[in-house]
């Protein structure tokens, strides 16, 4: 059994800042992420094809961006958070050799459904690669151990 920190709904306050996450952008991440998401569009793994499209290098696909957003938020929320939405707006591309830095904070909290909303951005040297919001249902207080 892996032990991981679990964020409880009552522990979260609006304005809470998530720990930042730095993601080095590599060819392996871009090409590997594309294939792990079954996206064989050549611009994500073939340098010549990417250049023909006018890009300096292969560029990250959207489904990998989604995966990294999940990692950033889940790393803070813990394994028992249940995602109800993951909404992103796409900005500048992620190219190899760059770094993407995630930051985010809690911008909504609904006690009725134990849902919290996180607003986040993932920024590289060119600007924001991704901005968006994620909604999560967090567990309540643990039941007393018998």
């Amino acid at each position: 059994m892996t032990s991981k920190n679990t964020k409880r709904f009552d522990d979260v306050r609006p304005g809470e800042v998530l720990p930042t996450l730095e993601v080095p952008i590599t060819v392996a991440l871009i090409a590997g992420g594309a294939i792990a998401t079954r996206d064989y569009f050549p611009g994500h793994h073939d340098l010549d094809a990417a250049r023909e499209l006018g890009s300096p290098h292969v560029f990250m696909n959207i489904l990998t961006t989604n995966g990294l957003v999940q990692r950033f938020v889940e790393g803070w929320a813990g394994p028992l958070a249940r995602f109800t939405s993951l909404k992103i707006k796409l900005g500048v591309p992620n190219y190899p050799g760059d770094r993407m830095s995630f930051s985010g904070s809690v911008t909504g909290r609904d006690p009725q459904t134990r849902t919290v909303e996180v607003t986040l951005s993932g920024k590289n040297s060119l600007g924001n690669h991704v901005t968006g919001t994620v909604a999560l249902v967090l567990p309540g207080q643990p039941e007393a151990v018998a």
């Binding site: 059994m1 892996t2 991981k4 993601v23 991440l29 590997g32 992420g33 792990a36 990998t64 995966g67 990294l68 999940q70 990692r71 889940e74 394994p79 028992l80 249940r82 567990p139």
Partner: peptide, 19 residues
């Protein structure tokens, strides 16, 4: 590849006791 390490996705024993 994503660096996601939540055992609910990969650890059957952990997930069996999970939500």
């Amino acid at each position: 590849i994503m660096g996601v390490d939540n055992p609910l996705y990969t650890d059957a024993a952990y997930a069996a006791d999970g939500p």
